[in-house]
Design a protein around this nucleic acid. Structure first.
Lengths: 335, 335
DNA sequence: TTGAAATGATAAAGCGGTTTAGCAATTTAT
DNA sequence: ATAAATTGCTAAACCGCTTTATCATTTCAA
């Protein structure tokens, strides 16, 4: 049978109070002798406190709920890794919920997390869902006084949030292309209304403007950040434009384009200068190695955790925007 | 303030007992009138039970601890997705622990999971750690009477386990190569002592044998299932062998080889027929598309969950071995 | 009618801890 | 020697829920 505190108390011939005090290292007036004794007994018998009981009594669980759209996606799984490592280092647990981009699930699961007594929630919203400024967040915001932070998404609301600077990303990528002499630059960004998609486009425009290149809306394409979209849009680009370079606003679409070109027995990289976004580790194995905008997912995760704990402790509202950089490899050539 | 059962009881003018009975749909003798009344009150006030209290009282948490070596690795993150989805569908939670291939962590974290009152543990051992038959598992096996199943690993111990048939995988891959006329087939498998690495090699030998091809130990290479190993081993293969085909026992090493070849301005696929292992989704975007042994990770995950719940319920010992198949695309050519 | 059975509801103990207030014994200061 | 302060320890309430045993009332059958 599982050993309880009561058992230990009995063995040590003291009260439960004393045991609790000792085992939690509370500064209380207990003789060193008993302290040693109790600790030894606990250790010898491999005592593990029942954390449901602890939670119930203390009203805190040392657990943070993490809501992610899709663990299967490399971006999110890396982020998750960063988050759970950061939490673990600070003595916290991550209770992870995978919503599979399902809207209903998102708010429902948040409910359940609350019932689990999590001390806070890290919400990584589904891109799909967040386009409208997020009903989800605002909704559960109202009801809840639970600390939470929005990760990798942006809203005008005055809530805790942390994300990457997508305007900068779009700008840097475009800037690089321009520096190499490109003027007809196609961009495939995400769907209208997604903040980061629009921001990357905004950055793109900004770079053009700064370099006195006219913006041509025919060079703007939109996809769903998936393989399929890459497939479709590259076809259009070939047919309808005279672009010399392409800026893919995520690597997945870039891979889709590669696939399509392979099928057509064409070489994407011969034909265009290419820059991607996310800097997926695969980019290094291609020939040429693919340039890409790099977002430090690790930092996003650990900063999010730091922010979370700060919010729990100090009840403040934080907002943070992480810088990005471009990893220039071989796929962008001088024109 | 959070609404408790007591509050509801007061509102409905009944005892807590009644509320509990009603809200848990226990078949008890309660008038329909009160049932409706109580349910309405609970719904209207958005009552969420405190699950620490429930766990404490019932001694079950509807939570399964899942221990994984590395969420960042695509294989594990996909498995995790399958597991957590399967659990969710059955009303369970996954408490996920990422050990980062850290041995100490593995057993320590298992301890903590137990303290959390998980109803069972799905252990996906680190390949690294599992080579010796797993001190970890055996260790915590002794102490614990908690239901658990070993996922994606094999041991002679009479414990619950589920994994893929790696002998079959090795066999099928090699068989395909042989059918296409290859006789000098290099294999890059995992390190000695890793059950699945050895099994894949076993399958390789079996296929050779069945086809009366002599086994040549100079064609056997070992790596660490990572990019780097692919880099290193392809170099040796080029230099030291006359292989016409290469069987990579995981895709990551294959990608490493591609990278190396790209750097050398050589084309891996022109020079060799290639088959990989894992059937990572990237295989479809290369040119040629890469053939690979496909393991149904989804099934592994959901079967593991099914097994887990069975173990919880029926206290039986289960063992299961999943079949694999080869996904033949374009990288294996007739010799 | 009356005793048995069925119905409706509850009190109270228990799950395994934390924490506050207080008591007794010892030490210290005067 | 005595009051005050310190030290060492514990009783008991509480966290929010489940569950068993029990009781009072109503319904039913004979």
């Amino acid at each position: 049978m599982k050993l309880t505190m009561k058992d230990i108390a009995k063995m040590a011939n003291v009260s439960m109070t004393t045991v609790s005090l000792v085992l939690n290292n509370k500064k209380a007036r207990i003789s060193q002798k008993k302290i040693n004794e109790i600790k030894k007994i606990a250790a010898d018998n491999n005592y593990i406190p029942n954390s449901s009981a602890v939670s119930l009594a203390t009203n805190e669980s040392k657990t943070i709920g993490v809501v992610v759209p899709n663990i299967g996606n490399p971006f999110y799984s890396l982020l998750l890794k960063a988050i759970s490592d950061a939490l673990k280092n600070r003595g916290y647990y991550a209770l992870i919920i995978n919503t599979n981009d399902n809207h209903d699930d998102e708010s429902q699961q948040v409910q359940k997390l609350i019932s689990r007594g999590v001390d806070g929630i890290l919400l990584v919203p589904s891109n799909d869902l967040f386009s409208q400024g997020s009903t989800v967040v605002t909704e559960f915001l109202k009801d809840i006084s639970l600390p939470f932070v929005l990760v990798n998404a942006e809203t005008k609301l005055k809530i805790n949030q942390i994300n990457f600077d997508s305007v900068e990303g779009g700008f840097l990528a475009t800037q690089l292309l321009i520096q190499k002499g490109h003027k007809k630059i196609a961009i495939i960004t995400g769907e209208k209304g997604y903040v980061n998609a629009d921001d990357r486009l905004k950055g793109y425009k900004k770079a053009l403007e700064q370099n006195h290149i006219n913006f041509d809306s025919n060079l703007v394409f939109r996809g769903k950040y998936d393989i399929q979209s890459g497939n479709e849009n590259i076809t259009k680009i070939i047919k309808d434009t005279e672009a010399t370079a392409i800026f893919f606003c995520n690597d997945l679409m870039l891979y889709g384009a590669m696939q399509k070109m392979n099928q057509l027995k064409l070489n994407l990289f011969d034909r265009y200068s290419i820059i991607g976004y996310d800097d997926t580790f695969f980019n290094e194995i291609f020939n040429p190695e693919v340039s890409s905008v790099k977002q430090d997912v690790n930092k996003l995760g650990s900063d999010a955790v730091i922010m979370m704990l700060d919010v729990i402790k100090n009840k403040v509202v934080n907002q943070s925007k992480l810088r990005v950089e471009v990893n220039d490899r071989e796929s962008v050539k001088q024109l």
